[in-house]
Design a binder for these strands. Structure first.
Lengths: 149, 149
DNA sequence: TATTGTTATACTCTATAACTATA
DNA sequence: TATAGTTATAGAGTATAACAATA
């Protein structure tokens, strides 16, 4: 039973992403993390002291949704919040966070290798350029206007 | 503020898919449909009389989750269910469904054009091959085993 | 016995509005 | 006035377990 929708690059993009995400989350399950948590840990490691809002803007997570997300990571004991001024919370990794991130990085590396391993050798150098081109957040205004809102 | 995670193809894949999906759903909103509904209509149009379970297997939607999904589309009056044997439900488009699908196809075509339009001319022929290579559902057993379950 | 559809349930993710307290 | 964090809430999407009816 063949899928008549392959041929639509938006559809392929979604299915490929969902499949890869499921695979990654299965690999991360033993660590008690999911993909979003690992992305957050990686971001904080790259920019220690980043605030909740800044992290949310980079990862495209809204302020309101950052609250339970950050709380969960804090509850796992992998990150810590520090008040930088009256309103901003700086995020930092704890020792346990650094340890868990090191393990997660190995899982992510294995996942990346598996993903790229599926791509024929000659196409492999095109993977990142193609994905970066397909990403490119259009200003929401343009979308909203195009859709008539 | 640059994103330190670009460079991970799994991350790019997810962000690109999320961004494209949001754009498509914004375009589809005036029709009262979302991406999943359009995928379903397209599938039924390509295989009239397909059963709920078969459709779920192709679109990777579980049996239990098909129930409210199909019910919503039926409630919109775009599909109809027909009993083929004691247990299977064949799905078909209604007239209204065919009409709405025709409009949705134009929206999808515009969305596809926009997606591909972001990709430099020389990379464009690689988009579908790259995405098809990155998809390739690994047997779940392999994932489960790799993750130690 | 395996499959189809179903119910119930729960968890994650996402989206919006409104509030506060700070800058 | 704009921003950071928060609360509350609602809607998707997804996952599992269990059950009845049927093949």
């Amino acid at each position: 039973m063949k899928d008549p929708l392959i041929g639509l690059c938006g559809y392929l993009l979604q299915r490929a992403a969902a499949s890869a995400l499921a695979g990654l989350n299965a690999r991360l399950a033993p660590l008690g993390l999911r993909h979003a948590g690992v992305a957050m840990l990686m971001l904080i490691a790259a920019r220690p002291g980043i605030t909740q809002s800044q992290a949310g803007r980079i990862l495209d997570i809204q302020r309101a949704n950052m609250v339970p997300f950050v709380a969960r990571l804090e509850g796992l004991g992998v990150i810590r919040r520090r008040q930088v001024d009256g309103r901003s919370q700086a995020l930092e990794l704890t020792g346990r966070g650094r340890l868990l991130l090191a393990r997660a990085r190995r899982v992510v590396a294995a996942h990346e290798a598996q993903l790229l391993g599926r791509v024929p050798w000659k196409l492999r150098p095109m993977v990142l350029p193609v994905l970066m081109a397909l990403w490119q957040d259009e200003p929401q205004a343009a979308v909203a206007q195009a859709s008539g809102r």
